[in-house]
């Protein structure tokens, strides 16, 4: 049992930190521009596919640098020539724009790379177990993923709190008009933040692609979860995003690892139902079965009882 707990914690950490890399960019974009970017996970997918194509020529390590940069440039271009034009039609139009963009990117990926799963593999350098516990390997690649995510968090935290540009960004989050009045080029800041946010998502894709398989549906699988994290964590709160990412990562991991279900609860209460009870689908539910929908349950509950999110200071 103990090994299940240990591995569930490690897995939860890996997933949670990966989600954080996506959520951090999204929350920055969201809090600055008020845009809930539906296409954010699509940039994550682009990162994986770009890295795959680049790694065919150069190997993994250059791809690790080049692919996120490329995705960042794509993101900045989308902001400059797409979002900015739509901006004047209001928030709904922006949201709908990113919604369409996500749709389009998925189709474009299928056009260029095909519809099947592609064979994007982790570098051979990291292809060995870090340690073996109770007969199960913990691949060094996962440790590498943790390392990258933690570095990103520290880096972002440092930039946002210790540098001039970080302070401007923080100010723009809470008081965008004042920042513009102070003479800062807010449209440029928007473009830069959008680019960096997309690049971070791309980086997450580069490192997650080999582990979580690279296929055209990978953005859809992750897309709405990232949204959930940003909203649960609270708009504009990087720390909130971190907490929510880890919370959801661990929650899902523990739920899957557990073996309990409604049956156990009913046994505990001493209740039992006939084998042909019409609601047997409910009475036989297990925690692992509902693990993937728990984030959405959490989302609805948080929005009803605390619309500003766990650590957020303002409402959307």
């Amino acid at each position: 049992m103990i090994e299940v707990l240990i591995f569930a914690t490690l897995n939860g950490l890996v997933t949670g930190l990966l989600l954080f890399m996506l959520a951090s960019g999204l929350t920055l974009i969201f809090s600055m521009m008020g845009v809930l970017n539906f296409a954010h996970a699509s940039f994550y997918m682009l990162g994986a596919y770009f890295a795959y194509s680049i790694s065919l020529y150069t190997g993994f390590w250059p791809a690790l640098i080049i692919a996120p940069l490329l995705v960042g440039v794509v993101g900045a271009l989308v902001e400059r020539y797409g979002l900015r034009r739509v901006h004047k039609s209001g928030h709904v139009a922006e949201l709908v724009f990113t919604f369409g963009l996500a749709f389009l990117i998925e189709e474009a990926v299928q056009l260029f790379w095909g519809r099947s799963t592609i064979n994007y593999e982790s570098p051979t350098l990291l292809d060995f177990p870090l340690f073996t516990l109770f007969g199960q390997n913990f691949p060094v690649y996962k440790a590498f993923m943790i390392f990258i995510s933690v570095s990103i968090f520290i880096g972002l935290y440092f930039v946002l709190t210790r540098t001039r540009i970080g302070i401007i960004i923080q100010a723009a989050i809470t008081h965008p008009n004042t920042v513009a009045n102070l003479g800062h080029n807010v449209p440029f800041i928007f473009m830069a933040v959008f680019g960096v946010g997309s690049g971070l998502a791309g980086l997450a894709g580069v490192i997650a692609g080999p582990v979580l398989t690279t296929f055209p549906g990978m953005a859809t699988v992750l897309g709405s979860i990232v949204f959930v994290i940003v909203v649960i964590g609270g708009l504009g709160s990087l720390a909130g995003a971190l907490v929510a990412s880890l919370l959801i990562g661990l929650l899902q991991s523990y739920a899957i690892a557990s073996d309990v279900g409604m049956q156990d609860l009913l046994d505990l209460l001493g209740v039992s139902f006939a084998a042909d009870h019409p609601l047997n689908d409910i009475w036989r539910l297990t925690l692992p079965q509902i693990a993937p929908i728990m984030p959405f349950l959490l989302l609805v509950l948080v929005l009803i009882f605390r619309p500003s999110g766990l650590l957020g200071k303002r409402e959307g």
Binding site: N11, V221, Q289
Partner: peptide, 18 residues
């Protein structure tokens, strides 16, 4: 497990191993 929804199978694999 939910169809087409699982991002990472590692938690399931931990259970298989143990």
């Amino acid at each position: 497990h939910p169809i087409g929804q699982v991002k990472d199978f590692t938690p399931y694999i931990t259970k298989i191993v143990s």
